[in-house]
Amino acid sequence: MGNWIANNVSTTFELSSAIVTAADSNGSLKAMLPTRVYAGQYATVGLSWSALAPQQRYFGALQFTDGSGKVAGTSSVSIDTADPLPVAYLSKPAPARRAQ
């Protein structure tokens, strides 16, 4: 598959698609949510997705509901276990502190 860009140079890319259903269950997706949110304001959600097979790509969706169970919003999550964080970031030593 190819694409022509503005300067008439060809480029290649990979096109992927995913269909997520409520029956899908790969690994363990956990979400940490605030106890209270307010309309028109931002809120932070923490996510962790563990027990995923290496060298795979995963796509998931989270649905946020209001007090009555009505879906108020949906967010997508994409994980690529074949592309981990660079080792330099994982093993970077903390800066040395000066003695006072």
Rank of each mutant, 00 (worst) to 15 (best):
A51P: 01
K30D: 10
S48E: 05
L62S: 05
L29E: 03
Y42V: 12
L62I: 11
G67F: 08
S75H: 10
V37A: 09
A82P: 01
L29H: 07
A39I: 09
P84D: 02
L90C: 15
S17I: 07
S78N: 04
K70E: 08
S25T: 11
L90A: 15
F59M: 03
G40E: 05
A94V: 13
A31G: 02
P34D: 09
A18F: 05
A82M: 06
G60H: 03
L62V: 12
R98Y: 12
F59S: 02
A61R: 02
N26F: 12
K30T: 14
L62Y: 00
A61S: 10
A39F: 04
T12A: 11
A96D: 13
G27H: 00
T11W: 03
G69R: 00
D66E: 06
K92A: 14
L29G: 08
A53V: 07
D83G: 03
S16K: 12
P84K: 07
A22L: 11
G60P: 01
L15A: 13
G46N: 13
A96W: 05
T74M: 11
Y42K: 15
K92G: 10
R57Q: 02
S50P: 05
Q56N: 08
A72K: 06
G73L: 07
K70V: 12
A88Y: 11
A51T: 12
S28L: 12
S10W: 14
T81L: 03
G40V: 04
F64A: 06
I19H: 07
L29S: 04
A39K: 11
R98A: 15
T35Y: 14
V87W: 08
T11D: 02
Q55I: 06
R98D: 10
S25M: 11
S91L: 13
V20I: 09
D24W: 02
S48V: 09
T21W: 02
R57E: 00
S50Q: 12
G27C: 04
V20W: 01
D66Q: 07
L52S: 06
A22D: 15
A53C: 03
A88Q: 14
R57S: 03
A39T: 11
S10V: 11
I19T: 14
D66T: 03
V45K: 02
A43R: 08
L33V: 11
V77D: 00
R57W: 00
E14W: 10
F13K: 08
A22Y: 06
T44N: 14
F64S: 12
E14T: 11
A18T: 03
V20M: 04
V20Y: 01
T44V: 14
A96K: 11
D80H: 06
W49V: 09
V37K: 02
S25Y: 05
K30N: 14
T21C: 04
R97Q: 15
I19S: 08
S17R: 07
I79G: 00
L85D: 13
L52W: 04
Y38P: 00
P93Q: 06
K92H: 12
S16A: 14
F64R: 04
Q63A: 15
D80T: 01
